[in-house]
Design a protein around this nucleic acid. Structure first.
Lengths: 336, 336
DNA sequence: AAGTTGGGTGAAAGCACTTTCAGTTTAACA
DNA sequence: TGTTAAACTGAAAGTGCTTTCACCCAACTT
C-alpha cells in the first residue's frame, strides 16, 4: 500500500489536499490564519502522507523564529508572574511564542546569555531583574539580538526601570501623613543571590530619607533584614512587634512580606490599621484581596511595555534606544 | 560603528576570499576536491568572519531541541503558576528550556495541538487542564511526541489527575465534623471557556453527596455560580451572606474565591471562623499567608511529576503509560 | 447600488545552501 | 610542441520551505 518512494514534501501534501503549498505552510505555522475547514483538509492529507517538514529547509527559509525569550529569576514569585502576564498578553496577540529561561544561579544566567545570541533561536529577549555586564550587553548588540532590560539599565540596550528610592519616599510620606511617629522596615536588604539585582536597599534609603526630612530617625534596630520567604518575614515581624517600644507603622519592601506581617499581627491580636499600619510594595493581585495599602509599580504594564518594545525593535531595528522610567503610585486601601 | 549586522553567509565568505560560493560550499563539504591554496584562502576568510553554516546549526539544533512545551489556559492564575513552578524546577535541573503556549481560545488550542507534533520543535509536551480529543491524541502518539496530560486523561497518553469529587467530600466532612449545619457553595460551575476542562462540578457533586449522606440537603439557592474573578466571587459571597438564613460554612471551589469570600466577610464584620467558616480548594501559596483551611492538591508536585514523566519518556520511549492519581489532603488552618 | 473592509488564498520571490554541468587550467605524455 | 586527461572552478539549477504581495470574494457601510 505504501506508495511513497520518497519522503513527502509540502508539494505532495498540496496536491493531495487540493490547495497551494502556501496554505500548507500556513497551516503548520500560523494555523489560526487559515479557515478551519481548509485546515482540516490539510491536516488529513498530512496525516495520510505522514508528512514531516524538513528541519533544514525550514531553518533555511526562516528568518525569524517567532519566539521571544524571557530570562528571569524567581519566575514564580507573584510579582514576576504578573510581569510575565503582561508579556504573554502582548506576545500572544502578536502570535509569538514565549520561552522562559528561569535563572537560579549565576552560571545559569551566564550560560543563557552567552548561548542565546549565538544560537539565534530567538527573535528577541527580555531580561528581568538581572544585572548584565558590559561585555554581555555588547555581545547582544553585536549579534543583533533585540533585548530589553527590566529593573536594570545599560547604555547599549533598551530598559524599563522604576525609581525605588522614590517608592520608599511615597511610603514614608503616606505614613507620616497618617500621623505615625515610630516606624519599622522589613525587607530583603542583603539577598543571597549574586546574580539578581536588589532594589530593596534603594527603597529603604528613600524611606529613611523622607523620614529624616520629617525629623524622624529610623534607627538600626527598627530595620529588619528578612529573606523573601514567609518564615523569615514572620520572624522579623515578630521581633519588631515584640519590642518594648514597637513601631506603629511598618513598611515592607514587598507585598508578600507585608502580608506575612499582617498574619503575625493577627496572631498577636493587633488590629490593622488601628494598632499597626502596614504598607507594602508592588501591588500584586493579592494585595487587593487582603486590602493592603501599597506602592504600585505597574507590573503588568512593565511586562506589556517590554514586549511591545522588543516587537517594535524587531520590526524596525533602527529604532532609537529607550530608557523608560515607570511611575510609582500609592494605592491606599485598608492597612495604612 | 556597528560592525556585524547579520550573521555571515557563504556569499560573504565568497566575496571576501574572491571565489564563488560554489567553492566555499566545496571547501566545507568535500575539501579534497579543492586546490589547497584556494582552500586556505577560503578557510582564512571563514575564520575572519566567524562564519558558521547557519542552516546546519539550526538543523542540528532542531533535531534535538532540548525544549519542552507546556500548553495551558490561565497561565497566570496562581494554581497554574504553581504547577509551572514544579515543571520549571525539574526542567531547569535537566537543562531543558520551557516554552509556554498560553491558550485563550479553542482555535488557539487546536492550532497548537495540530502543528506541534508535526513541526517537532519540542521534545516533549505537557498539557494542563485541557480536553483533547481522540484524533489529536492519536496524532501525538503517531508523531512520537512525548506528552503528559494534567487534569485530563486519555488512554493513549500519560496523565496526572485528581479526584475532584473526593475533594468535595473532604471539605464537607471537615465542615460537618466542626458541627456546621448550613452550607453554601461558591464556584465556577459553568465557565465560559469551551476549551478548558471544568473540575468544579465534580467538586460540588462530592460536596453535595457527602452532605446528603449526613442527612443535609444543599438546596439550589445556596449554590452560587461565580466566575473566577474577584468581583464575581464577591457578589456571590454577598448574596449568600445577606440571606435571611445565611450559611455558617462556605466551600469555595478555589482558594482565590475563598479569599474573596473572606474579604467580604471582613467587610460585613463577620468573624472567621466563629461566624463563618470558609474552606477553599487548591492550597495555593497565598492560602498559608491568610490562614485559609483548604483542600491541597499538590500543585508543585503535579508539575514536577509531569516534567519527570516526559523526561523519562524522552530517555526511554518504550516506557509504559502511566495514569497517576494524586491524593488530596485537607489542610486545616484558621478559617474552618 | 456603490464603496469599503477584511479574511482567505495562490503566484512568485526569497532563503542559504548543494549539485550539476560545462568550461578553464594545469600537468603529463607522446 | 601539440594533445589530452585530470584537476579545478563558477554559473545556474535545484532543494523544501517561508513570506510578500496582490487578488478574490463575501460581508458590511452609507
Amino acid at each position: 500500500m505504501t506508495s511513497a518512494k520518497k519522503t513527502p514534501t509540502i508539494y505532495d501534501v498540496a496536491k493531495l489536499s487540493g490547495v497551494s503549498i502556501t496554505t500548507i505552510s500556513r497551516v503548520l505555522n500560523s494555523p489560526d490564519k487559515v479557515n478551519p475547514k481548509t485546515r482540516q483538509q490539510v491536516m488529513d492529507a498530512i496525516d495520510q502522507l505522514g508528512f514531516v517538514p524538513k528541519a533544514e529547509a525550514r531553518a533555511r527559509a526562516m528568518r525569524y523564529t517567532n519566539r521571544i525569550g524571557v530570562i528571569t529569576p524567581f519566575f514564580t514569585a507573584p510579582s514576576f508572574v504578573q510581569r510575565l502576564r503582561g508579556v504573554a498578553a502582548t506576545l500572544s496577540k502578536a502570535s509569538y511564542e514565549l520561552v522562559i529561561y528561569p535563572v537560579d544561579s549565576a552560571e545559569h544566567l551566564q550560560g543563557y546569555i552567552s548561548s542565546i545570541p549565538v544560537m539565534r533561536n530567538l527573535d528577541g529577549l527580555i531580561i528581568m531583574s538581572l544585572a548584565i555586564d558590559e561585555k554581555d550587553a555588547q555581545r547582544l548588540v553585536d549579534n543583533a539580538m533585540h533585548t530589553v532590560l527590566i529593573e536594570y539599565s545599560n547604555s547599549l540596550l533598551n530598559s524599563i526601570v522604576i525609581n525605588d528610592a522614590h517608592g520608599g519616599r511615597l511610603a514614608a510620606e503616606h505614613l507620616i501623613g497618617k500621623g505615625h511617629k515610630s516606624f519599622g522596615f522589613i525587607g530583603d536588604i542583603e539577598p543571597p543571590e549574586r546574580y539578581a539585582i536588589h532594589p530593596v536597599r534603594s527603597r529603604l534609603q528613600g524611606f529613611k530619607e523622607a523620614l529624616n526630612e520629617a525629623g524622624i530617625d529610623l534607627s538600626k534596630k527598627y530595620i529588619k533584614q528578612a529573606y523573601y520567604s514567609q518564615e523569615n518575614s514572620r520572624e522579623a515581624a515578630l521581633e519588631l512587634l515584640n519590642m518594648s517600644k514597637r513601631p506603629t507603622a511598618i513598611f515592607a519592601a514587598s507585598d508578600i512580606q507585608a502580608i506575612s506581617i499582617m498574619k503575625v499581627a493577627r496572631q498577636l491580636n493587633l488590629r490593622i490599621p488601628e494598632d499597626l499600619a502596614v504598607i507594602g510594595f508592588d501591588d500584586i493581585d493579592m494585595a487587593e484581596y487582603v486590602d493592603l495599602t501599597t506602592i504600585r509599580q505597574h507590573l503588568d504594564d512593565s511586562g506589556r511595555l517590554s514586549a511591545e518594545m522588543v516587537l517594535a525593535r524587531i520590526n524596525d531595528p533602527g529604532r532609537i534606544l529607550q530608557n523608560i522610567h515607570l511611575p510609582l503610585t500609592l494605592i491606599e486601601r485598608q492597612t495604612a
